[in-house]
Amino acid sequence: MIIVKLSLLVLISIIIQSTILSSLYMPGLLVTPDLVLVIVVCLALLRGSDEGLIIGLCAGLLLDLKDGNIIGIQALSKMLLGFSVGTIQKKFFKDNYLIVIAVVFIATVFFDGFNLFLYSSFGANYNFTQAFLNIIIPTAIFNLLVTPFFYYFLLNSEKKMNLNGEYKN
């Protein structure tokens, strides 16, 4: 049941990202927040490296299939993201939103940088400095803004499921 719920959440976030958020263009900025990245970070922080790895891999693969570009780049990046954030999860207090926001910001810069490296390795025509300034930093700021809402929702769902005994950590 939990797998179905998480899959639906990721699928819905991809659809929202490609429709509602893509139509909310802000002058001068042409990026959309990476909701999938935010969800993977939040879930990895809440549930650990194993779940982070699986959720990241599945979400990244879905994103790759939807993107229609090279398959595997988003999957690898999101999987490593989920795994690495999940690994450091126990060192943080889960109710501290500031830490979550900071982790999302750093993760966006680092893993979007990794994406840039992979896309460029496979022949994409990117200028590293411009990509950092025009894509990665604005995306990180957008991600930072949407994170509290997602984390609040996921943290409450997690607490509810813990109370109902739907799963055990």
């Binding site: 990202q17 429709t19 893509s22 990026v31 990476d34 993107d67 570009n69 988003q74 979007d112």
Partner: peptide, 14 residues
């Protein structure tokens, strides 16, 4: 145009 590519790495439309 019904959708724009969800990632920031490709410029495609549906």
């Amino acid at each position: 145009v019904i959708a724009i590519n969800p990632t920031n790495w490709s410029a495609t439309l549906t």
